[in-house]
Amino acid sequence: MGGLGAAMVILFAFVAASMLVSAVGVVAFRRPIYNALALVANMLGLAVLFLLLNAQFLFVAQIIVYTGAVMVLFVFIIALLNPRADIRLQRPGAEWGFGIVFGVVFAALLLIILSTRALPGKPGPYTPEAIDAAGNVQTIGRALYTTFLFPVEVASVLLLVAAVGAVYLARRRIH
């Protein structure tokens, strides 16, 4: 485990660092398409973190759903609306003020949580061994369609309503 553990820590440090850089890129780049691509890079980093936690299905789902579907639409729309315009946002004092206030509050909350309650780290029913025995996808599938069946169905109805609504709005414009 020793060599593997060290390799995992190095990988984690690398991915976490590149996620921080790309997160800064999301707000710092001056051209909208680079902002969106930085967000894509950030989501890819998150997917790799899932992989390091042995959550292979989440890794794949994160890439397919977020980078493959959601962010492609973002990039699409940015490229279509202003392919060349370098939007130079003026950064007035108010935005920086809000940013600093919320950043400090968020950091303080994180610090308080981390310092007051130690992470439990006690094994639940889904230990790596149990998941490996049943299979990663199988474990998630079983949980989603037995324990969490009702929330899953509600969420799917919600998505269906959103899709129908989008189609309705789009068609109304045409007529």
Binding site: L37, Q56, F57, F59, V60, I64, G68, V75, A79, N136
Partner: peptide, 24 residues
Amino acid sequence: TNVGVLFYFALTSLGVYGIFLAGY
């Protein structure tokens, strides 16, 4: 891997970026 061919779909969804960004 346990996710098998889903990994391939994850990659093809990234391949879209290569082509789209080339066009852009």
